[in-house]
Amino acid sequence: MKNKTLAYGRQWINDDDIAEVVRVLKGDWLTQGPTVAAFERALADYAGVKHAVTFVNGTAALHGAMAAAGLGPGDRLLTTPMTFAATSNSALYVGAEPVFADIDPATLCLDPVKAEVKLKELPGRVRAIAPVSFAGYPFAMEPFKKLAAEHGAVLIEDACHALGGDRGGRKIGFDADMTVLSFHPVKHITTAEGGAVLTQSDAYAQALRLFRSHGITRSASDFEEEPEGPWHCEMQSLGYNYRLTDLSCALGLSQMRRLDAFVSRRREIAALYRRLLSDVSGLALPPAHEGHAYHLFPIRVEAAQRGPLFAHLAENDIRLQVHYSPVPHHPYYRKRFGYRWGDFPEAERFYHEAISLPMFPLLEDADVVRVADCVRGFLER
């Protein structure tokens, strides 16, 4: 009998999710309605912050955060090379330049020591720092808070991998000036596509809401001119149509009710992988942390074995992924900024050795055993 095909990630949609979407479909508001506000309130309450501002996807949310932070031409964003391109691309969208510091191999996240070196190389030019909680690992935020304060930078956590994780007894989303989330189908909850920015700041929240809606406000308290009538609205800045629909938010609101269960199951799967693979020679497991959200479970093997292992798993109907090719080494970045292999040795070493095993709540224990047996069999052979 043919094995079922396993991917590295996938969504979990149940009947309650479908019923919530159908309820909104049958209602009066498909977009810009009350379900958006309800989903935003649920996100903010979960993270313990004042505001959650939703966007059409995580990239739009990052774009909004960079704009709200005031980045523009002549400014720099400091981030990690080990992330999806959207983190640094969002700086380019507002006319700023992304710069990179290498990762800490113990966390796979931006190394604060190397970040400090880069900040000293660019005194007064780094307007924002965007560490990434890679794979869901809740890196220590205090060193970055200190660096941001010392250098007058806005601290933006890219937590697109980390919703539901914990840092210092608090849910991720509380510690930075702005925290960005993604609701892509492989993430901890999904709205099909979607994203959000969490913040304690009224000013950032207002800027984010303007940015996602063409820069237009309909709030009388914010008007710069005398209103001509109840229809009055004002475009006060250049924004985009980045609004998330009520349909998407209905799905997200329903998924939020199971978020803790989703994260708990991811942690169980990670623990089982660790038990099954910890004694395999030539294999390194990802860094552990009690607050880890486990969006990904990236193992490391010798660089020469990564491709053959990937192919072997594919032959056994296990379809995996590699996260990520270091952003500065994409052709666009190399051509525009002149980055070369060797500039970020830790990120490059990780990339050449990494492969992400299946990690999503619908995985059964037998699926995890099957993957682990396949990995073990190849490496021991």
Rank of each mutant, 00 (worst) to 15 (best):
E226T: 12
L198F: 01
S237C: 09
L309I: 09
V22M: 13
R334P: 00
A91Y: 07
K2V: 05
T87Q: 05
H63F: 15
S219V: 03
H292Q: 03
R243Q: 11
A44E: 08
P143K: 07
L122C: 02
L251Q: 13
K118T: 13
L92R: 09
H295N: 15
L276G: 10
D177T: 05
A101W: 12
K120S: 09
G282H: 08
E121C: 02
V154Q: 00
A106N: 01
G342A: 11
W29F: 14
L208S: 00
E380H: 11
A196M: 04
P34G: 07
P361G: 01
L210K: 04
C160Q: 15
L272T: 12
V117H: 13
L122E: 10
W231F: 14
V197Q: 00
V94W: 08
P112Q: 11
Y204F: 15
D279G: 03
A288E: 15
P328E: 07
A38E: 15
F262K: 02
K171L: 11
P98D: 08
S133E: 08
A293Q: 04
E380C: 12
Y351S: 14
F84R: 15
F84S: 13
G195W: 10
M82V: 06
A284M: 08
M178T: 08
L283E: 08
G229D: 12
Y240H: 15
E116P: 04
E348P: 08
V94Q: 05
P138A: 01
G152S: 05
A19N: 08
R376Y: 03
L30S: 06
Y242T: 06
D15C: 01
H330C: 05
V49N: 05
D17G: 02
L92G: 02
V322C: 07
F337S: 04
R340A: 14
V371E: 06
E353N: 09
G152E: 01
E224A: 11
L155G: 13
A52M: 06
P287T: 05
A140H: 13
H214I: 00
G307H: 13
V263A: 03
F100W: 10
E268L: 02
L30V: 00
P230K: 06
C233M: 09
G165M: 04
L238V: 11
S254A: 15
V154K: 14
Y273M: 09
V154N: 03
E224T: 14
L163G: 05
T83A: 15
A19H: 07
H214K: 07
A96E: 08
M1R: 13
D158G: 02
D367M: 09
C374I: 00
R170A: 09
H184N: 15
H329Q: 13
K335C: 01
R381T: 04
A314M: 07
P34K: 13
I103W: 03
H214G: 01
A52N: 06
L309E: 00
V154C: 09
P345G: 10
Q321N: 10
Y8S: 12
A69F: 12
